[in-house]
């Protein structure tokens, strides 16, 4: 079996297409993730994120295009590929009538780990996921957060080089979310490649080396969090004037130090900054000199929210319910 060298792409997809009856879920998407990095698929419900994951984990054949994961083709080398991947889906796919330990051991045996290894791995993972105390309890007594952690542990049993996490934190409380993020970061530090889908901008911002923004089955932007933010513009000053009547004079006063001509947007005077250092002091000095009263000044960097809004013309509003990406467009 081929291994993957550090310089290789662990995930590469070209022109992936998939339709369900008359709904086109994926309209030819390209993805790539170098080994040891985190690629986030960011998009609203029904954007096609789950479909992409299902294709890359061999659960679904694409209608068109091709994809390789860990150097193996997802269609023609699907059988070999399955030993190289771990999948944690939107639903905690664990058996309620087994204990936590039994669930992990079962998965280890189905990965055909050497004798004795499934049990050892199960104990190790339960410890790491803070489930040791619940190891011998039936999963049906677990809380939602515990099930999710067990589900993620199951995906890690065989130490797969490539990990797929479909909305790993949807429906989790904030504390569990942060715990899960730390676990994912730990895996990546050990060299695992991760593809995760999310509707949460902060999640993509924190975890991803690279983000593919998906909407209506297309990749509409691709890059690091910073690159995406740069696409919508650099830093800016948001200035609240005491009186809006001063707007024209304020624009005139600030124009010489702005990267572009400042403008009034939603009652805020927005000034693209040429040089971050000293920008606030200089702006305040100039407005004072012109005798213009200031209520508030803030340096702002565009957020992924701005990115999404600029790219799609609509805001990204995560649905708080049970991950529904699959429900609407894909089942």
């Amino acid at each position: 079996m081929r291994g993957i060298a550090a310089s290789d792409l662990a995930i590469e997809a070209e022109g992936l297409r998939k339709s369900y009856k008359d709904v086109e879920a994926l309209c030819g998407i390209d993805l790539s993730a170098p080994a040891g990095t985190v690629l986030a698929l960011l998009g609203p419900n029904g954007a096609g994120k789950t479909t992409a994951v299902r294709i890359l984990t061999t659960l679904l054949p694409p209608d068109g295009g091709s994809a390789r994961v860990a150097g193996l083709d997802v269609v023609s080398e699907a059988a070999q590929l399955r030993s190289q991947i771990g999948l944690a889906g939107q639903y905690a796919a664990v058996d309620e009538n087994l204990t936590g330990a039994e669930n992990l051991e079962m998965v280890g045996r189905l990965y055909h780990l050497p004798k004795g290894e499934p049990r050892a791995r199960a104990a190790e993972l339960l410890e790491r996921f803070d489930l040791s105390d619940a190891a011998d309890r039936l999963v049906r007594t677990y809380s939602g957060g515990m099930r999710r952690r067990l589900d993620l542990a199951a995906a890690l049993v065989a130490r797969p080089p490539v990990l797929f996490l479909d909305e790993p934190t949807t429906g989790l409380d904030p504390r569990s979310r942060i715990g899960l993020w730390e676990t994912i970061e730990g895996r990546v530090a050990e060299g695992t490649t991760v593809l995760l889908t999310t509707q949460y901008l902060d999640e993509a911002d924190r975890l991803a080396d690279s983000i593919s923004v998906i909407d209506h089955g297309r990749v509409i932007a691709q890059g690091s969090s910073d690159e995406l933010k740069d696409q919508v513009g650099g830093e800016r000053l948001d200035i609240t004037l005491e009186s809006k009547d001063d707007a024209e004079r304020a624009i005139a006063a600030l124009e010489p130090i702005a990267a572009e001509r400042p403008a009034m947007i939603d009652g805020l005077l927005r000034m693209p900054v040429r040089e971050r250092k000293g920008a606030i002091a200089e702006a305040v000095r100039r407005l004072n000199e012109a005798g213009i009263g200031i209520d508030d000044v803030a340096m702002r960097r565009p957020t992924l929210d701005d990115v999404f809004l600029t790219l799609t013309g609509h805001a990204l509003e995560p649905d708080e319910g049970e991950g529904a990406d699959g429900e609407e467009a894909e089942r």
Partner: peptide, 13 residues
């Protein structure tokens, strides 16, 4: 219904 079949199908079994 619970997605276990998806997990099984993603395993090298």
């Amino acid at each position: 219904k619970k997605g276990l079949v998806d997990r099984f199908r993603s395993l090298p079994m």
